[in-house]
Design a protein around this nucleic acid. Structure first.
Length: 619
RNA sequence: GGUCCCAUAGCUCAAUGGAUAGAGCAACUGCCUUCUAAGCAGUAGGUUACAGGUUCGAGUCCUGUUGGGAUCACCA
């Protein structure tokens, strides 16, 4: 049993004797003692004043004395400072706890008969993945691993937005200017190639729009606006045309007309359009797959919007018949959520076509029928908070059985030190570029240092990948998901300090010790060893692993695991500096330290695995 | 304008309502004939945006203010 559990039980029993009350964990705040005081755990006695009708100091004294006399094997010393009871556990307890940690391995969680579906990534097929996707992917992957670790079954899915006007733009530009280029003929990765045509479309469209602005037609529209606009609100000619872009695309632009025509043909199932569409999407999927591989993530299932975009219409009928939705005179269908503090929301346009919300309703039901998950988690940026609020509210109104298990894991957008990423300004950080960059940074850093010259080239390359990706992934995952994040590319390739490689390095040092020791930690009897302060500090931290995993699972926040792993690595580095393992002053000390090192390594490896980071044996 | 989120050291981030708010980076100073120096130790850096309130105790909870962000389409 964990020492804190033993202590907790003894305090419960002592307070029952003293004050005649059964107290729960919440009523007995027990926390690790701060560094500047003597002790392992601290009991805050203020909450007990009402029950005991005594001063905090008196209570602390009483509990402390009872613990000392009643549990001499467990409690070694106590001291009271301003109502805080600091309790030092006996070194025997700690040593035998180390033995059990070493013997039992990592924290075990009971298998739960509960499924959690996690949706993440959800890319569009007209562009390659970028930094924003990376944060999304790492969060989703990490949460799914944490769920698996804590006893759930996790289902990983992505939704691929493979249809719509955007991909038509890429297709059109490819047909007009592509000259039959393929990833093979051009040597460009498929998703990037398709992205290039999307950009090409936008720039051709921009040119077309600029030219049109000097025509008589454009001038006339500008004049008409000026005549109609209220004087105070009138905007400049430049601003007017900035805002007119959509209208131009939909009503006037020849390029826009062609793209929309393509969309219509796609919906009609036109063979030629569908052919180009699936060919180009296949290029993109190959490209995505390579990026996912590089990031070390995967999915159980991919949902394609082209298969699901018509879903949800039957739910609208159902909702209408039950009076949850209503039909307006023009034929459009709505739901009124004003009683929930939300707005009115459209579900079917007057022409009968559906909107995103309708589709999402249908997809959720579809997914539920596929997996019957108890919880469905959407990892989606916080710009869609309102969308999900509405989506979940509608599901509840429709009485869907899974409505209560819906969760939006909302994360803040990733920004650069120079501001937001904008594709139009070319400031989007490409995922593949970034991955390549961090790996090459790891390579040059190692070469500069001359480390691992004796390692075969192939393994070296593998290590550079592990180290580079650790830097990138850790840099992103250590931040609380809810917070908007400033991503400085310079810092993301840092290999020192509060970084992934720092944690890997602690692990690597341990592997090196065991290589030299020539054997694993044995099942030797460690009793009788008196732990030094630095050794106990590490052990106490190791004992906290379980609660940090649970916290991450409960709060949907992998950064807890990341920051915990750093704390462990830091404590180990200090331990490593202060104590010699192989040249320990006694056989017993050597054995104890081997155990400490072994437990540290397995916790570090496990924790990092939960956030998608691999540990090299050497670096 | 309505709703939601955020504000902590120069910068990037931590801190189950508990004691004197911690790390890393950047700056400066030490430590490799000893298990990997991608390390360790030290110096310096704070009115936790502001004002009230709740509490034995508030960076944390409540109210208001300011600043920043998001969102409120017959867009996706």
């Amino acid at each position: 049993m964990h020492p804190i559990q033993q202590l907790f039980q003894s305090i419960v029993s002592v307070t029952k004797d003293l004050y005649g009350q059964d107290l729960t964990e919440a009523e007995l705040p027990l926390a690790p003692t701060r560094k500047e005081f003597e002790g392992d755990y601290t009991l805050v006695t203020f909450p007990l004043t009402r029950i005991a009708r005594k001063s905090p100091d008196q209570i602390a004294e009483e509990i402390g004395n009872s613990l000392m006399s009643g549990y001499p094997d467990l409690v070694a010393d106590v001291n009271v400072i301003k109502g805080f009871l600091n309790i030092g556990l006996s070194t025997r307890v700690w040593v035998s706890f180390l033995e059990s940690l070493s013997r039992d391995g990592l924290p075990v969680f009971p298998r739960l008969d509960e499924k959690i579906l996690v949706e993440y990534s959800s890319p569009n097929t007209n562009k390659p993945l970028h930094l924003g996707h990376i944060r999304n992917i790492l969060l989703g992957w990490s949460m799914s691993r944490i769920f698996e670790r804590t006893g759930y079954e996790a289902i990983r899915v992505q939704v691929i937005n493979d249809r719509g006007i955007a991909i038509c733009k890429s297709m059109l530009a490819w047909e007009l200017y592509g000259d039959g280029a393929t990833p093979e003929s051009s040597g460009v990765k498929g998703d990037h190639l398709v992205g290039e045509y999307y950009v090409r479309f936008e720039s051709e469209f921009k040119k077309e729009y600029a030219e049109w602005q000097s025509t008589a037609d454009a001038e006339q529209r500008w004049k008409r606006y000026q005549a109609e606009a209220e004087k105070e609100k009138a905007i400049s000619r430049e601003d007017f045309f900035k805002g007119y872009k959509n209208a131009y695309f939909n009503e006037i632009s020849p390029l826009g007309a062609k793209a929309r025509e393509m969309l219509v043909k796609w919906e009609q199932g036109d063979a030629e359009v569908r052919g180009t569409w699936s060919m180009m999407n296949d290029w993109v999927y190959k490209g995505f797959h390579a990026t996912y591989d590089a990031l070390g993530v995967s999915f159980h299932k991919s949902y394609y919007e082209s298969n699901t975009y018509l879903l949800g219409r039957d739910l609208v009928e159902d909702g209408l018949s039950r009076g949850v939705f209503y039909r307006q005179d023009d034929g459009s269908v709505w739901i009124d959520l004003t009683d929930e503090g939300l707005d009115r929301k459209i579900l079917l346009r007057s022409d009968g076509t559906s909107v995103y919300m309708t589709q999402d309703l249908g997809t959720a039901k579809d997914r539920y029928e596929d997996y019957h998950a108890n919880r469905m988690i959407y990892v989606v940026a916080d710009e869609q908070n309102y969308h999900f609020q509405v989506l979940f509210a509608i599901m509840k109104k429709l009485g869907m059985p899974f409505a209560d298990g819906m969760v939006h894991l909302s994360y803040g957008m990733v920004e650069l030190p120079t501001g937001k990423m904008k594709s139009r300004e070319g400031t989007v950080v490409d995922a593949d570029d970034l991955i390549r960059e961090v790996i090459s940074e790891a390579r040059s850093s190692a070469e500069e240092r001359g480390d691992g010259d004796d390692i075969p080239a192939e393994e070296q390359e593998r290590i550079y990948q592990q180290v580079g990706l650790a830097a990138l992934k850790y840099h992103i995952i250590k931040v609380n998901p809810k917070k908007r994040m400033i991503f400085d590319p310079k810092e993301s390739v840092d290999l020192q300090g509060h970084t992934g490689p720092y944690i890997q390095n602690a692990y690597v040092r341990i592997q090196s010790i065991f290589r030299k020791a020539g054997r694993p930690a044995t099942e030797a009897d460690l009793t009788g060893y008196d732990l030094a302060e630095g050794e106990k500090e590490l052990l106490l931290l190791l004992s906290e692993y379980r609660q940090h995993i649970l916290q991450a699972a409960e709060q949907y926040d992998p950064s807890h695991v990341a920051n915990y792993a750093y704390a462990v690595a830091k404590a180990f580095h200090k331990f490593y500096h202060d104590f010699s393992v192989l040249r320990a002053e006694s056989e017993l000390a050597r054995e104890v330290r081997l155990h400490l090192a072994a437990v540290t390594a397995s916790i570090l490896k496990d924790a990092m695995e939960l956030i998608g980071i691999e540990m090299p044996d050497r670096m």
